[in-house]
Amino acid sequence: MVLYGYTIGDVDINPNQAGEQVAVYRFPISPLATTPQRVGEINTGSILNRDLEGLGTNPSTGRASAVNEARGSGTTAIDPTVLRVNNVDQPFAPASVSPAPTPSDLRRFGFDSGADFNSSALYNISGNGDTDRGVVGSSLYRITTANPGTISLVDAFGPATTAAQRQGTQPTNSQFADGLAIDNLNPGSTRAFASDFRTSDGDGNQLYKVDLLTGQLSAPITLRTPSGLALNADSGLAFTNSGSQRLLALLETGAVYEITGYQDELAASGLGTATRVVGDGFATATLLGNVNLPSALAPSPNTINYEGFTIVNE
Results as ranks from 00 to 15, higher is better:
Ala70Gln: 13
Gly281Phe: 03
Ile311Asp: 13
Val291Leu: 07
Pro36Tyr: 09
Asn313Thr: 13
Pro301Tyr: 08
Gln167Ser: 06
Thr75Cys: 10
Leu251Cys: 06
Val67Cys: 15
Gln216Ser: 10
Arg84Asn: 14
Pro99Arg: 02
Val82Tyr: 01
Ile143Thr: 12
Phe197Lys: 10
Ala64Trp: 04
Thr131Glu: 06
Tyr306Lys: 04
Ala95Leu: 00
Pro148Ser: 07
Thr150Leu: 06
Leu293Val: 09
Asn58Leu: 03
Ser138Trp: 12
Ile182Gln: 00
Asp183Tyr: 02
Pro294Phe: 00
Asp112Gly: 05
Gly9Trp: 04
Ile151Pro: 00
Gly308Asn: 09
Val278Trp: 00
Ala233Cys: 07
Pro99Leu: 02
Arg246His: 07
Leu55Glu: 05
Thr172Phe: 11
Glu258Met: 01
Pro91Thr: 02
Ser152Gln: 15
Ser98Met: 11
Ala177Val: 01
Gly308Asp: 09
Asn241Arg: 08
Thr286Ala: 12
Gln21Trp: 15
Leu185Gly: 03
Gly127Ser: 08
Asn43Tyr: 00
Ala194Tyr: 05
Thr303Ala: 07
Thr214Met: 13
Asn232Ser: 07
Pro103Met: 01
Ala33Asp: 14
Ala296Pro: 02
Ile304Phe: 09
Ile221Pro: 00
Gln37Pro: 05
Asp132Met: 08
Pro15Leu: 10
Val210Met: 08
Asn49Tyr: 01
Leu229Met: 13
Leu231Cys: 03
Ala163Met: 10
Asn43Arg: 10
Ala181Gly: 12
Ser60Asn: 15
Asp132Arg: 15
Asp89Asn: 15
Gln206Glu: 15
Gly40Gln: 11
Ile42Asp: 05
Ser60Gln: 13
Ala249Ile: 08
Ala268Thr: 14
Gly74Cys: 08
Asn124Glu: 15
Leu212Arg: 09
Leu140Arg: 02
Asn49Val: 09
Thr161Ser: 12
Asp234Val: 11
Pro171Tyr: 01
Ala249Cys: 09
Asp89Cys: 05
Tyr306Ala: 08
Ser195Trp: 05
Ala181Lys: 04
Gly40Met: 04
Leu250Ser: 01
Phe27Arg: 02
Val277Thr: 13
Gly45Glu: 03
Ile42Leu: 10
